[in-house]
């Protein structure tokens, strides 16, 4: 039902068409939801858990893996929280809704699954300590976010991974206050980009033992995109020398808004303002009836970065209730590495 579409619309902070039909008032900060504040002091483990007074939140894990067969694999595990009202109650009528997306991408295929749940009955949720995020049988669990087991399954796939954090948490923007538009829309945003990952993927062609790197994003907010913004391109890149880059571009009628965080190998994060990074689509592919850029030129003059980012496979389309592209990428140019790319609004 539309509830599901709306849920996703909210999660991606997109001005979905239905908002124009009656949800237009949602723009801004109204409806009693909290809005992100500059200078917010994160407290852990509390902030690993949910923030029900904010409209949207996610626990977003991606991993670039290499199988024992030498092939590249990508894994996505995402839990979204979407609140219809800024309250938390028990039972079916809780306004907190949850949605899970999981996917495995191979060089020639993409497997995905989607789950939905209400918040008040225990079918899905997040606890900060001990740390667990779950929906149905999928979970990301550990004593704390530094040591995790991760599992998800769909009709055609299943995975069991264990993750160990080898570096510190990274805060984006101004100490975790990440601005999303020139009008000032923003979110609270931090990451753990230093996971070492190992485990097994169960795929239609057989089981594959894998190892690699993972990246967890935590973000919450209450505001949709600015009215002219139609979607975004988001990159998380890990270079072979240990440095990392988070960069995104929000596409808008009044011009793009970009932001980035340069993460050095020791975890030192440097936020980079609007206009620091540039993103040029070099090649598009026809995926599920849409033209999606699958090769990008990403440049970051401050760090002398000029790389080509190419999708492992164009097939990484998330044909969920609200569709988007999310898949592993390879980096070449004056630096090489791997990473994940997410593109919405195509």
């Amino acid at each position: 039902m539309n509830v599901k579409a709306l849920l996703f619309g909210l999660l991606f902070l997109l001005p979905a068409p239905m908002w124009a039909q009656g949800y237009a008032g949602l723009g801004g900060s109204a409806d009693g939801f909290d809005i992100p504040k500059q200078g917010y002091q994160f407290q852990f483990p509390r902030d690993h858990g949910p923030h029900p007074s904010f409209r949207i939140e996610w626990w977003y894990l991606t991993a670039n893996l290499i199988g024992e067969d030498g092939r590249d694999y990508g894994v996505q595990w995402t839990l979204f929280r979407s609140a219809l009202k800024p309250t938390q109650t028990d039972g079916w009528q809780s306004p907190q809704l949850w949605m899970g997306h999981a996917a495995v991408t191979t060089p020639d295929a993409h497997y995905l699954a989607e789950r939905l749940s209400r918040g008040g009955i225990g079918q899905a949720g997040v606890t900060a300590a001990p740390y667990e995020a779950w929906i149905d049988e999928w979970h990301m669990r550990g004593p704390d976010p530094d040591t995790l087991t991760l599992t998800a399954s769909g009709e055609e796939f299943h995975y069991d991974l264990s993750l160990t954090a080898l570096g510190p948490l990274v805060f984006h923007g101004d100490a975790g206050y990440s601005v999303k538009s020139a009008d000032g829309q923003a979110s609270h945003y931090y990451s753990q980009p230093f996971y070492d990952v190992e485990g097994v993927l169960y795929l239609p062609d057989g089981d594959v033992a894998v190892t690699g790197q993972g990246w967890l994003d935590r973000e919450w907010s209450s505001q949709p995109l600015a009215e002219d913004q139609s979607g975004w391109d988001w990159f998380s890149l890990s270079f072979d020398d240990g440095d990392k880059l988070m960069a995104f571009r929000l596409r808008g009628g009044r011009g793009d808004f970009t932001a980035a965080t340069w993460i050095s190998a020791d975890g030192t994060a440097t936020p980079l303002p609007d206009g620091s990074a540039s993103f040029i689509p070099l090649e598009t592919a026809r995926v599920e009836g849409r033209d999606v850029p699958v090769t990008w030129q990403v440049t970051l003059p401050d760090y002398d970065l000029d790389v080509e980012v190419t999708a492992l496979t164009p097939k990484a389309w998330m044909a969920t209730r609200f569709e988007y592209w999310e898949g592993p990428v390879k980096v070449s140019g004056n630096r090489s590495g791997r990473g994940y790319l997410e593109m919405t609004g195509y």
Binding site: M1, N2, V3, K4, L6, L7, M18, Q21, G22, Y23, L84, K85, W92, Q93, S94, P95, L97, L116, S117, R118
Partner: peptide
């Protein structure tokens, strides 16, 4: 029915595609 996980029923679809669709928040919460 659990409107979130139950397969879409024609009546629900019809109401939601009407000129005045209900706010999902109203459907799902008290």
């Amino acid at each position: 029915v659990d409107m979130v996980t139950y397969p879409a029923l024609p009546a629900v679809t019809q109401v939601e595609q009407s000129d005045t669709p209900p706010d999902p928040a109203d459907m799902l919460t008290a």
